[in-house]
Design a protein around this nucleic acid. Structure first.
Lengths: 171, 171
DNA sequence: GTCAAACCTTTGACATTTCAAATATCGTCC
DNA sequence: GGACGATATTTGAAATGTCAAAGGTTTGAC
């Protein structure tokens, strides 16, 4: 490649605002992944230290908290994006701790419905408030306008990904 | 709060384009988390179906691929954001599959260096190419300019989070 | 009514994950 | 040259995660 060719190419790339060149999607993914891991680990640590809870337990309880009537395990599995088998164990442990209660409805004995106990609601309520504060703190240096933009644009990413899944995952 | 005060507040919120009101950071976090899970699961499924590999193994091999001399397990742990104990098991299994090789350098017998084998390099190379394509496909509906913006802005989030960690995590 | 297909959850095998404690080695101070 | 603190990895317990297969239950077709 001659000097002038090289200069031209560089210019084009710069003009396109993509000096990173190819693999932009890959780079975005790696950054999303590492950022998500970072935040997850921080939340996990704080949940553990301040409440003796785990993140998956918190996630599961969050779903039950907004459905006071309780949810079937399959529905919980979908909402938490966790496999069925995993939900079984999670709910078992939460039940052992008295935070969740399992009920088999009269109509359909195949079904198990999980529901927060009073203790579970109290417990989750405290964790949720702290959790929200942690996130505000962690993102304190990001402009609110940027946070909104990110929320919107990541929604677009999620949409695109949903439309290009190989498996049979549709909603 | 009087009625007129309330009305004023509502108006401000609407004008700011934040009818979601508070908890913007929380909403961003939930969306980041679910999107990341969605993509992870898709990549996991494809790695499994097409290559018989797992995502953590792929991540680990990716680090070794760009450091052909190999990496100490502690360094691998930092780069993959995985705990030390976890790296031990991952490397063990990869070694059993003949993809990675462990060496203890002469100078310091505390250290273990993991390095891709020839088979590991070939294997990873194929997976990496496919992996990059999967991401491009999944994000195909997102404008390149948006992808760039996201990359930049998520960088800002990561920065902010890094500066507000409670633990002793600094780089 | 009965059988088969569909549905919901659990189970079992295995991999990944964290944390804390244990192990092993190195470097240094005296 | 021995003890101590710092480093580096491994181990062990418990939880989370996937997948596939097995268990009950219900429903619908006949």
């Amino acid at each position: 490649m001659t000097e002038s060719e090289s200069a031209t190419v560089d210019l084009e790339i710069i003009v396109q605002g993509a000096q990173e060149g190819k693999k932009l999607e890959l780079r975005l993914w790696l950054r999303m992944l590492s950022t998500t891991k970072l935040i997850s680990q921080e939340i996990r640590r704080r949940l553990r230290n301040e409440f003796g809870a785990t993140l998956p337990q918190f996630d599961l309880m969050a779903q039950l908290y907004r459905e006071r009537e309780g949810l079937r395990l399959g529905e919980l599995s979908k909402r938490t994006m966790v496999t069925n088998g995993n939900v079984t164990g999670l709910v078992e442990r939460l039940e052992a701790d008295g935070l969740v209660q399992r009920v088999t409805p009269d109509g359909d004995r195949r079904v198990t419905v999980a529901k927060l106990t009073a203790k579970g609601e109290t417990s989750f309520s405290a964790m949720a408030a702290a959790h929200e504060g942690w996130l505000r703190d962690m993102m304190a240096d990001v402009e609110p306008a940027i946070v909104s933009e990110l929320w919107r644009d990541i929604g677009a990413v999620k949409s695109s990904v949903s439309n290009h899944l190989s498996g049979a995952d549709f909603d």
